[in-house]
Design a protein around this nucleic acid. Sequence first.
DNA 1: CAAATTATGGACCATATGGTACATATGCGA
DNA 2: TCGCATATGTACCATATGGTCCATAATTTG
Lengths: 196, 196
Amino acid sequence: MNTSIGRPLEFDPNAALEAAMHQFWSKGYKHTTMHDLLGVMNLSKSSLYQAFGGKQQLFRRCIGRYADQFAAQLRQGLTDAPSGRRFIEDFLHSVLKDAGGAPRGCLVMNTASEIGQGEPEIAEDVAHSIERFRAVLQAAVERAQREGDIAPERDARILASYLVSSMSGLKTQAKAGADARTLKGIISVILGALSA
Amino acid sequence: MNTSIGRPLEFDPNAALEAAMHQFWSKGYKHTTMHDLLGVMNLSKSSLYQAFGGKQQLFRRCIGRYADQFAAQLRQGLTDAPSGRRFIEDFLHSVLKDAGGAPRGCLVMNTASEIGQGEPEIAEDVAHSIERFRAVLQAAVERAQREGDIAPERDARILASYLVSSMSGLKTQAKAGADARTLKGIISVILGALSA
DNA sequence: CAAATTATGGACCATATGGTACATATGCGA
DNA sequence: TCGCATATGTACCATATGGTCCATAATTTG
């Protein structure tokens, strides 16, 4: 494909994509302007259109990148965790990390909230990303079941969806300004549902 | 105040506000344009500025109106319900109602997701609205505790926050396209946490 | 009826928006 | 060295945006 014919890129595509992703993450899809993107990606408008095709295509790649990174991080966390249950606990408690400043939530869930079912391609990306997160969480639940921390007869698929949903709600509460004490309380109730 | 001197209004302020609220609910704050609002509120731009002062002020009144209506609906539901527990169940199951078409979520939570802590006045309105919802849900939890459906030693305040958070997550899942079966599964897990 | 008071219609505005066109620059291979 | 292929900078564009201004219309009060 890219046989390095012609003039070479003057920007780092990977870094540019990463920067764009963070911009979209902070401001949302429509609220992020081309101007914002150019400023943060370190390239000119021509180059952006040449390399990424436009705002929506760029955004879709950012969602994909986000999902890749987040899913990989989850898998790694699960691998490293002493138990499935501990992983799930840490996963939820990670919300407290950035709760103080200006929490950005999750790019995927933010997009679900912003676009819903408008813009079908994006809705598709969102659904697919959620499914990826869910799959990792299901693996965590199944591990916890094998380890005796979650009753084996419970539906791991549903519990994983529950965790996705709970995380989403939690991050929204953080964005709305909930204090750490409240968030911790909510988390303990969420976790309680797994032992019910 | 309004001693009816001067030319009378040609539009119904109440109906206009209601229409604006639904518009913001469907499209979000920034995505809703003046053009959208004028089309749906049945007044001219001059009148909108005269009567409501501009987009942000109008939006804040819409949030207030939404919170009034939703809180009143919750209180009524709780009053009419055969038990606190049943009310909470119905409250969560209400998400399934509009899950088929194009769910709009909750205007307040959508706004939390869209604006976060930017625009402090709006963030303030959001926080205040959430607190109102939480208060009603806390009353429901306390009733369920008196009725023996939730253990009395549990923190009703936290459980109420948990329900707000869970509802928010659930609505986001619906917006993301989750099917009814999945949503029902999540709801049953959410409810399970109350009995834990 | 006239004055006071409020509402409305429509023109106008500065700026922002996402996107395109095209000339020019920069590298690789023959 | 020359041409090909790709990248970049600049100018440009149509439209949308939230908002203001002001002349005019429709009431009530004196």
